[in-house]
Amino acid sequence: MGTPRNRRVKQAGEAPEPSGSSRRDFIKTAATVGAGAIVAAPAVASGFDFDLESFFQKNFRELSEEELDALVKRLSRKYSKKYGKDVSVSAIGPMDGVLYGYGLDISRCTGCRRCVHACVEENNQSRDPEIQWIRVLEFERSEALRGIDLKDGNPYYEHKEVPDEGKFYIPIACQHCEDSPCSKVCPTGATWREPDGIVVIDYDWCIGCRYCMAACPYGARHFNWAEPNVPAEDINPDMHVIGNVPRKRGVVEKCTFCIQRTRKGRYPACHEICPVGARKFGNLLDPESEIRYVMKHKRTFVLKAELETKPKFFYFWGTEGRS
């Protein structure tokens, strides 16, 4: 059926699918007149930004290079105007020979939640209603004697100072699974795994059925229950189309390994802010990378390994003699 065609295996020089595009063009023309009027009326009346061009936009994976280029330019203009600053939206693709991996040293994490808030600021998450991609769970060391059970974790801890006596902390965000249950269940193909291992969402394509949220074993996916709200002065103008562009109401979002940073070679925001250096990030295909050193020399584990989702987010105990 109409599943996005696997363009990676498509033969070079193969003609573009004419039936698909002409059919869409026809639909576009026909529907613009009819449905446009019906759909636009209430949307405009309710004051949300709406334009036909974005309404009939194709799935990100099916956009041609030219269409993607036009989209990027349009969004840059739109958000520069909206937020009154020089916003640059990019669609920079994956680098060859890169598979991202993340390591987190739970012997170091102090539960200070700086990563949570740096992530919110970097990725333009809604401030009210609050959306946070990283959740830091606090565990009792004594309870961990019978193994780590996530249900013992408490994300709502409040202390004057951390780490609290006898506690340890596990920050959890998207695990960027190789066999991601979320992308498997998505009915519209609005979420998928990129060649560099980042699981992304096409926010313009998501219909908000939240099946992926039911499927995700890590609670990593978050829904825009109301119109997201980020003050213009707090907007991060360095944006990526399938990363931190402002989201719309009624779509799902989640960690993208800071795709707008990492694809340019930079560290993710949570990595940069961590005051204790508990976060490690790099290319799993590069034997010299930090993450490969961790894999080789430390004992790593992944969350809910029994589900065989093959996460690319590894937890490890980095410090000898520290308990």
Binding site: R5, R7, R8, R61, G93, D96
Partner: peptide, 15 residues
Amino acid sequence: HQPETTRDYPPRPLI
């Protein structure tokens, strides 16, 4: 196992 369907990205050498 879902086949990985993604964009047909142009090659981009490692920086």
